[in-house]
């Protein structure tokens, strides 16, 4: 292995716990110079991954947050007609120079950066069906042409591209074929402890046990429309710690439910369960064989 590729090796950072397979997927993407496509439930830290990869490798990061109205073109550059017309009207600015009205988008900025950067394309599945195909060529060749000026923007240093998807839409085959893929699984309790430890060090072990039991129990409820995720767990623990709640109070009751369940029906369903005198588990063994420790 060459030194250069060793230099660009991601090993995880202090603030972000990664599974080994994810580290290897990241390094694979770096070495192959392919985009890394990360899928997983919302709240499993897909976006955070990019931030920490950038930090771990010492790269600057540029994010492109995709919306349902996003067009591939916007990522490359935007030609601000409106501004130019306005300037023409009032005789301001440098109307004669079309280049001063061409604004680079995230992809354009990363390409024209003097140093290697990390480009995060966040939630690519939010956009139109054809969107991923539209950016294929640019990401493949790392170059594009500004149509208005025929200028070609070429990446000086091939950026590292991380793409996240919430699995809302199927992505085209041609797009998938070019990516290194990783699916972030929902962390097992063991892993979750480590993750919690990063965010809330020094949580009492038995309290954390109760918290996690409730959390995994809640996730196991088949009626829930939106299962609470890691990020919600972190928020919930923050709320619990701040209120100084005790372990006993947790045993038969879930306080601050609002930070875990974000859906009215879910909250109602749980209130129902409470009223019926439903039993909440307080031992790992109550959760079934998968959680026997």
């Amino acid at each position: 292995m060459s030194e250069e590729s060793d230099f660009y090796r991601f090993k995880g950072t202090k603030g972000y716990i990664v599974s080994r397979s994810l580290v290897e997927a990241v390094n694979c993407a770096i070495a192959l110079e392919r985009p890394l496509l990360v899928k997983g439930e919302p709240g499993t830290g897909k976006t955070l991954l990019a931030k920490h990869v950038a930090e771990g490798l010492g790269l600057e990061m540029e994010s492109w947050h995709i919306k349902s109205t996003s067009k591939a073109m916007e990522g490359l550059y935007v030609y601000d007609t409106l501004q130019r017309l306005n300037d023409a009207r009032f005789g301001e600015g440098n109307v004669g120079d079309i280049r001063s009205y061409i604004k680079m988008g995230p992809v354009g900025r990363v390409f024209s950066a003097p140093k290697r950067q990390l480009l995060l394309i966040d939630e690519v599945d939010k956009a139109d069906l054809e969107f991923p195909n539209d950016i294929l060529r640019e990401l493949d060749e790392m170059r594009f042409t500004v149509m208005e000026t025929s200028d070609e923007v070429v990446a000086k240093e091939r950026p590292l591209v991380i793409i996240t998807s919430n699995n809302e839409k199927e992505l085209p085959d041609a797009f998938l074929r070019r990516c290194v893929f990783h699916f972030i699984e929902f962390p097992e309790p063991e892993m979750m402890r480590k993750i919690v430890d990063v965010h809330h060090p020094n949580v009492d072990t038995s309290l954390l046990d109760q918290v996690l039991i409730k959390f995994y129990w809640l996730r196991g409820q088949p009626d829930l429309r939106k299962k609470p995720s890691t990020s919600e767990l972190i928020d919930w623990i923050a709320a619990l710690l701040r209120s100084g709640i005790s372990q006993d109070q947790l045993e038969s009751h879930i306080p601050f439910l609002g930070s875990l369940l974000k859906n009215e029906q879910d909250t109602a369903a749980l209130a129902d369960f409470d009223e019926r005198g439903g039993d909440m588990p307080s031992e790992w063994s109550d959760l079934g064989p998968r959680f026997n420790q």
Binding site: S21, L32, V180
Partner: peptide, 11 residues
């Protein structure tokens, strides 16, 4: 892991 990341494109 590498085989999985490069060959498989859907969980």
């Amino acid at each position: 892991n590498i085989a999985k990341a490069t060959l498989i494109k859907s969980e």
